[in-house]
């Protein structure tokens, strides 16, 4: 286990203020660590990594890492990521978004990026809440959960991000909780080295805005909850009572080429005088 922290420190921007801006017990830092470790493990040069983030707590991740970083407008990270990847397919493009970012305001962009199968890794940090604005319910807030805009319990049903990505045609769909950081690392590495559109949903606790309103006493309680309820899909299938459990692991693994590869092939074929796309 040696040098994990040293590796992370190497990739941080040293002129930024530390510790991270996140609240105590926030899982975003673990995802940030996982992202850095995955890039390092895959030996991708820093110059070739682009992190495009949206707005919100997750958007702050971009500023800390010493890659090419873009802090886009709210919900639009995937649109910029699409433009960057299509313009320069050599780059490893990672769109870091929150649940509100990717599935409320940016829901349309998400399903279309997945359908288009553009070679971008979408890393969605799902904390079930709008954290930065102070704890309003989001499109992933569970039914019945409390937030500042659902003070008597959420009446709307929530999105299952994995189902959304699968139904939209994503090439790879993965989910893991931050409590299982090693497994998260493995999935993120897999997603980053695969073609096409890949979703990695990281379940990350927000104690400050979600936990305190939903009967969690400490940040540790939230991690214990993830430890118990985020179970590998194989185990999940065998559970008799699935209530409250969240399946994790690999949900979709297709090998279709990304849009940028298809586009380049079409261009080559046109230039060779053979006509349009295959």
């Amino acid at each position: 286990m040696a040098n994990v922290t040293q590796v992370i420190h190497k990739y941080l921007r040293h002129n930024k203020k530390f510790p991270l801006v996140f609240c105590p017990g926030c899982g975003h830092g673990i995802v940030l660590g996982s992202l850095v470790r995955s890039v390092d493990a895959l030996n991708i040069p820093q110059d070739k990594v682009v992190v495009v983030a949206g707005i919100g707590c997750s958007g702050r991740i971009a500023a800390y890492v010493d890659f090419n970083t873009v802090h886009a407008t709210h919900g639009r990270a995937l649109t910029l990521a699409t433009g960057i990847k299509m313009s320069n397919p050599e780059l490893t493009v990672i769109a870091v978004m929150g649940d509100g970012d990717a599935f409320s305001i940016g829901g349309n962009h998400f399903i279309h990026a997945a359908r288009r199968n553009v070679g971008v890794t979408a890393l969605v940090l799902n904390n079930f809440i709008y954290g930065m604005t102070g704890g309003q319910c989001s499109s992933t807030t569970p039914f019945g959960a409390y937030s500042h805009t659902s003070p008597f319990g959420q009446l709307e049903k929530s999105f299952d991000i994995v189902d959304m990505a699968r139904a939209s045609g994503a090439n790879g769909v993965f989910r893991e909780s931050v409590f299982h950081a090693k497994r998260l690392d493995a999935l993120l590495q897999k997603a980053l080295s695969r073609p096409g559109f890949n979703l990695v949903e990281a379940l990350t606790p927000c104690f400050t805005q979600y936990g305190r309103n939903n009967k969690f006493k400490t940040p540790v309680d939230m991690f214990s909850w993830l430890k118990k309820y985020a179970v590998p899909i194989e185990k999940y299938e065998k559970l008799e009572n699935k209530d409250g459990y969240i399946p994790t692991g690999v949900f979709v693994e297709k090998e279709e080429p990304g849009l940028e590869a298809r586009y380049a092939a079409m261009r080559d074929s046109l230039r060779a005088g053979k006509g349009g796309a295959a």
């Binding site: 873009v70 886009a72 995937l78 649109t79 910029l80 433009g83 299509m86 780059l91 962009h109």
Partner: peptide, 17 residues
């Protein structure tokens, strides 16, 4: 793209690249 917001987003991304 899926809408005009996305169109501008893609253009900005391309220009950055």
């Amino acid at each position: 793209m899926e809408d005009e917001i996305a169109s501008m987003g893609a253009c900005i991304g391309a220009s950055l690249a």
